[in-house]
Design a protein around this nucleic acid. Structure first.
Lengths: 200, 200
DNA sequence: GTCTATATACTGATAGAC
DNA sequence: GTCTATCAGTATATAGAC
């Protein structure tokens, strides 16, 4: 939409700042002032680029939905079943490692009833999941994966991988300070788990 | 502390109401007025029983921590390894089904940095987890369970079971209205998963 | 113990100068 | 485009009558 380069830059800075604050304090816990300070702007100046606090939040969630579903879209029905699943697990875990704020933004939204993103779950998420669940079911039916419920299989991948972003504080508290980076251990564990679960 | 029966009842009513509101709106998203209305009390009357909004929240979290760890405490090193794990999984899943508000209260707190409950993670949770992880490690070492990382095994049980409470909205959106109760499917899936993961 | 009324502070958003 | 000043609405908590 006819934006100058400077406008796009400022909007990006605001989104970056907003993601930071929303993801750690939730929607209600975040103030426009906090976002403005993090973006190094005055409050009215920020509201010159976005009409309201809610507009920023909605914008972030909509942007995120696409990125979030990319790894699942890439699940290829022509590939090797177990490799495809393990690749998906690794990508989702990498997203938890590299985009923990996005994961928490999403988790906050779902946890509090998905009032803003709710519709997209039925219109965007469900059709994609149903499609991929069908692919997985065919693999299982063909004896190329051990049988189990495909939908719950996908739920389990989401919960296990996102846990390392969303519950990061708890994971680190339990593992203690001697574990600097839990992700290598996590990847090894999850690969083992899904291999034992699915390999024929 | 020298409370009359009526006082205890009112405090229980307040806690019940507060759990309802805090778990669906988060700490900042909750107003004292909402809690008061839900408890059918006036706002000043509510603040006669608790000194502040934060005091109610802290009280709930502290109470919850104990209940939350009970199923793990019952993991018995003299029992059959796989049965003990599966029982733990079933109990945790039952808690997600029967106490979803408590699960979400806890998830909200961890997700937003565990500012209030953080210390208890190191002093209460970690020692218990380390202890039970040792039991599991011994079972694995004795060849009674297939080897894997005990800490991450516990993480996986938490994330998989709590997912059905914390992400309930998403689970239902994906499964669609034809699935009335996802928990029986979930239990069957999780039992299969941990059996394949751990049975020798 | 419980209420009405209110003090005090914060927050989202806008007006208007520059 | 960006700022200072400020409004209107809301929130926590308290004062004081009963």
């Amino acid at each position: 939409m006819g934006q100058t380069r400077i406008q796009r830059t400022k909007i990006a800075v605001i989104c970056e700042a907003a993601l930071d604050v929303f993801s750690t304090h939730g929607y209600r816990g975040t103030t426009v002032d906090q976002i403005a300070r993090a973006a190094e702007l005055s409050k009215p100046n920020l509201l010159y680029y976005f009409p309201s606090k809610e507009a920023i939040h909605t914008h972030l969630l909509n942007q995120l939905m696409d990125t979030w579903l990319d790894p699942l879209r890439e699940l290829d029905h022509t590939g090797d079943p177990l490799s495809e699943i393990l690749t998906y697990v690794r990508r989702k875990l990498a997203m938890s490692r590299d985009m923990p704020r996005e994961s928490r933004l999403f988790a906050n939204e779902i946890l509090q009833g998905a009032e803003r993103i709710g519709p997209a779950l039925s219109t965007e998420l469900k059709p994609l999941v149903d499609d991929k669940a069908r692919v997985i079911a065919e693999w299982m039916h063909a004896g190329r994966l051990r049988a189990s419920d495909p939908h719950h299989l996908l739920f389990s991948i989401w919960s296990l991988t996102q846990h390392y972003a969303d519950f990061d504080v708890q994971v680190r508290a339990v593992l203690g300070p001697e574990v600097d980076d839990p992700f290598p251990e996590a990847e090894a564990y999850l690969v083992t788990m899904f291999t034992r679960m699915l390999s024929v």
